[in-house]
Simulated scan of single mutants.
Amino acid sequence: MDWNRVEGNWKQLKGKVKEQWGKLTDDDLDVIAGKRDQLEGKIQERYGIERDKVKTDVDDWYNHQTW
């Protein structure tokens, strides 16, 4: 997985992230700035999901993106 693609296109992808995880605020997304570990941490914090499940969910989201 090439997460650099997400970091490089973060401004364009913020909307898609928010569609998937609507509890994340615009401020959260600004702080995350495309960094996967921060994204996973915020999802875990907002949704109360286990770390392993969050990793799987983020992988699934990434793999369903059309580049």
Results as ranks from 00 to 15, higher is better:
residue 66 T to C: 00
residue 1 M to Y: 10
residue 33 A to F: 01
residue 12 Q to L: 14
residue 38 Q to K: 15
residue 65 Q to K: 13
residue 29 L to I: 02
residue 42 K to V: 06
residue 35 K to S: 06
residue 24 L to C: 04
residue 40 E to L: 10
residue 60 D to R: 08
residue 38 Q to D: 13
residue 43 I to G: 02
residue 59 D to Y: 07
residue 16 K to P: 00
residue 56 T to N: 11
residue 66 T to D: 14
residue 25 T to W: 02
residue 10 W to M: 02
residue 7 E to W: 01
residue 52 D to S: 14
residue 28 D to E: 05
residue 40 E to F: 02
residue 32 I to V: 15
residue 46 R to E: 09
residue 57 D to R: 08
residue 10 W to D: 03
residue 18 K to Q: 14
residue 51 R to C: 01
residue 54 V to E: 02
residue 36 R to V: 03
residue 18 K to H: 15
residue 36 R to N: 11
residue 36 R to Y: 03
residue 65 Q to T: 08
residue 58 V to S: 06
residue 30 D to N: 10
residue 39 L to A: 07
residue 14 K to W: 00
residue 27 D to E: 15
residue 11 K to M: 04
residue 61 W to E: 05
residue 9 N to W: 08
residue 13 L to D: 07
residue 56 T to H: 06
residue 22 G to H: 05
residue 30 D to T: 11
residue 66 T to I: 12
residue 48 G to W: 09
residue 43 I to H: 09
residue 59 D to F: 10
residue 17 V to A: 07
residue 45 E to F: 14
residue 62 Y to P: 00
residue 43 I to S: 04
residue 53 K to F: 05
residue 3 W to R: 09
residue 13 L to Y: 14
residue 35 K to Q: 11
residue 40 E to T: 08
residue 21 W to Y: 10
residue 49 I to R: 05
residue 63 N to K: 11
residue 44 Q to I: 07
residue 9 N to F: 04
residue 8 G to Y: 07
residue 23 K to Q: 11
residue 47 Y to F: 13
residue 25 T to D: 06
residue 46 R to N: 08
residue 38 Q to E: 14
residue 29 L to V: 06
residue 11 K to H: 06
residue 45 E to Q: 15
residue 4 N to P: 00
residue 65 Q to I: 14
residue 40 E to N: 09
residue 21 W to P: 02
residue 65 Q to W: 13
residue 41 G to P: 00
residue 44 Q to Y: 08
residue 15 G to M: 13
residue 5 R to Y: 04
residue 8 G to S: 15
residue 33 A to W: 01
residue 12 Q to Y: 12
residue 34 G to P: 03
residue 58 V to K: 01
residue 31 V to P: 00
residue 65 Q to C: 08
residue 27 D to G: 05
residue 14 K to N: 02
residue 17 V to W: 06
residue 3 W to G: 02
residue 62 Y to D: 01
residue 9 N to G: 04
residue 14 K to S: 06
residue 34 G to H: 00
residue 1 M to R: 10
residue 28 D to A: 01
residue 63 N to T: 09
residue 18 K to G: 08
residue 64 H to I: 01
residue 33 A to E: 12
